[in-house]
Design a protein around this nucleic acid. Structure first.
Length: 223
DNA sequence: GCGACAG
DNA sequence: ATCTTGTCGC
């Protein structure tokens, strides 16, 4: 697939994105992440299920897959979504909201990985990224919970959120079937002791252990 | 044309 | 993102 074709796919998927309030109780959330070897085409994907709002790990889905699409800013989904979908299909129950490591609509064409995955899997998803892809924002207050809007072309596409005092902010944006307020609410309730929210952090940890051979592929229920 | 650029 | 050592701060 060429970049031109990928762009066309994004423009088509874009019309299926739904930005709307969450109008049901959220009892289970999930975090998704990918890990890979710099000189290999093998990627390790994982999704961890957490109870909400108590954030207790319920289980994790791990999968290994070959990828050939390179990392290109603005096209991250084409590299990571296939593996994440495999991990997604292994889940015995789907989460009420999925937290993806990357942007939702805070993207040049409003189709970041969280929006892309959300549409393809037809599920509520939000993006929580560590860096900006596009848009500008003013530095939020230095205290935990402070946030400012992330703006691109006169449009509010997300928010810069300080998850802890005096740490760099993370960037939250809706992906699909959720709105910015809902995404901010979820992330605010997912912040534990670290800058990175628990769903993303725990997914990252699980995937790394998997890559090191300390965890097995498939779904594992935690007791 | 120039700079910026999720993971 | 990954690799990688020491180092600064709470």
């Amino acid at each position: 697939m060429t970049i031109t074709e990928a762009t066309q796919v994004q423009n088509e998927l874009r019309e299926k994105v739904r930005i709307q309030p969450i109008d049901y109780p959220v009892n289970i959330i999930a975090g998704a992440d990918i890990s890979f070897n710099k000189f290999s085409t093998t990627v390790y994907a994982g999704i961890i299920l957490l109870s909400f709002p108590d954030l207790k790990p319920l289980g994790y889905s791990l999968i290994k897959k070959e990828v050939h699409f390179p990392y290109v800013p603005g096209y991250l989904a084409f590299r990571e979504v296939p593996a994440l979908l495999d991990a997604w299909e292994q889940l015995p129950v789907k989460p009420d909201v999925l937290v993806v490591d990357g942007h939702g609509i805070a993207h040049p064409r409003r189709m970041g990985i969280a929006a892309h995955f959300g549409v393809v899997a037809d599920t509520p998803a939000l993006g929580c990224a560590k860096k900006v892809l596009c848009g500008k924002y003013e530095e939020p207050g230095l205290t935990k919970g402070s946030f400012t809007p992330l703006i691109h072309k006169e449009e509010i596409i997300g928010a810069a959120l300080r998850t802890r005092d005096k740490v760099k902010p993370v960037f939250v944006s809706p992906g699909n079937k959720i709105d910015l307020q809902g995404a901010m609410s979820i992330i605010n309730q997912c912040v534990g002791k670290y800058r990175i929210p628990e769903p993303t952090r725990q997914a990252h940890n699980a995937v790394n252990e998997f890559r090191k051979g300390n965890l097995e592929a498939g779904f594992t229920t935690l007791s």
